[in-house]
Simulated scan of single mutants.
Amino acid sequence: MKASVYYSKNDIRYQDIEQPEIGDGDILIKMKSCGLCGTDIHKAQHQTVTGPIILGHEVAGEVVKIGKNVIRYGVGERVVTAIHVPCFNCHYCDRGYFTMCDQFKKTNLEPGGFSEYIRIPQLHVEHLTHRIIPELDWDRAAMIEPVACCLHGLKSANIHAKDSVLVMGSGTIGLVSAQLAALKGASTVIVSDLSRYKRELALKLGINHAINPAEEDLEQRVSEITAGKGVDVVIIAAGVSSLVTQAVNVVRRGGRVIVFSPFDNNPVVEIDASRLFRDEISIIGTYSLTPYEMKEAIEIVEKEKINVRDMITHTWPLSDMHEAIEFAANPANDVLKVIIKAEE
């Protein structure tokens, strides 16, 4: 079978590899669509992983083979899945911190989403894999995994009706989070981003305000929009560590700052720490998803409770992964979500 194999930043090869063998509790799917995640782009561009490796985890596909002990799925069914499974039985899992589980990152799809065929291991079959309706096209199905990630982050945000929410960064995670915030009851949703294209798309998706922080004073604009109170929730969805400082400055008393982005460069920042005690603000990190968000994400995407269709701006064939990553990583391009398609 074919796969796009990452060796280094400028060396991604579309090549033949062995099709994985499945075990008794596994299933094999033919990849139909796989989203190009911001983490995939970051890994490839910043070479934070060692090749050869096959990236990709936002997977939607068709079951083509099942293990002899699999009774839940049949050949020909349409499914989505995700990447990591917790053990449900450790110190962290017992307390609901499933993504902190030691097993979590050790579990994976084989060989990765950017391949023609993918083995879904038994644990993933049991806890992370779900059917999708025939009416849902493959590209939107590939958006279910990032929607689930955002749902996981919003659990910590504890959004109430009529809350105001600022999302810093208008990439896929930012715009999904912004729409979900509105779906959860927020009456005022603000995004900030340097990209004109992404700000305009945010407004098209129904976001109330879109701020260019290079041309407007973000803190002043947030103060104006919220009548001087600050926002109830800030979601950081861009890998710029200085945003933490700004987030602390614009969140209201008792508000919450949700950090949903890695900070590889200059991760040490200064904040007004007195606000933690005096104003009871919270700064909370969030990572990935748990099995409990997948079903909700499927319902949201299938019933079009948020608009993921207009977020998908480009598709690329599996054979052109390098070009897709280069295009998506270039800030000069009008691009949001790229979907990689298997060759027919």
Rank of each mutant, 00 (worst) to 15 (best):
108 N>R: 13
303 K>H: 13
33 S>N: 13
104 F>N: 05
128 L>Y: 10
205 L>Q: 01
344 E>H: 12
51 G>T: 01
270 E>N: 15
100 M>C: 15
79 V>W: 01
65 K>N: 13
64 V>D: 02
151 L>V: 05
231 V>D: 00
147 V>A: 02
124 H>C: 09
110 E>N: 14
132 I>Q: 09
160 H>A: 15
196 R>E: 15
53 I>G: 06
118 I>S: 03
333 N>T: 11
323 E>D: 14
134 P>V: 12
304 E>W: 10
285 G>E: 05
111 P>E: 07
62 E>P: 13
253 R>A: 14
176 V>A: 03
265 N>Y: 15
217 D>H: 10
18 E>A: 12
37 C>I: 01
172 T>K: 03
323 E>C: 08
261 S>I: 04
31 M>W: 04
323 E>W: 05
69 N>F: 12
57 H>D: 11
246 Q>K: 13
94 D>L: 14
285 G>A: 07
199 R>S: 02
317 P>L: 06
303 K>F: 14
251 V>H: 04
126 E>A: 10
184 K>S: 01
26 D>E: 12
324 A>V: 00
191 V>A: 01
35 G>S: 05
239 G>M: 00
231 V>A: 00
300 I>K: 00
132 I>V: 15
74 G>T: 12
91 H>N: 11
277 F>V: 13
114 F>E: 02
116 E>A: 10
57 H>R: 12
65 K>Q: 13
36 L>E: 01
340 I>N: 00
209 H>Q: 12
4 S>H: 00
184 K>R: 13
220 Q>L: 15
334 D>A: 08
10 N>F: 07
123 L>W: 10
114 F>H: 01
322 H>N: 11
154 L>R: 00
46 H>A: 04
44 A>M: 06
108 N>T: 13
138 W>V: 05
88 F>S: 09
32 K>V: 12
295 K>W: 11
201 L>I: 09
214 A>D: 11
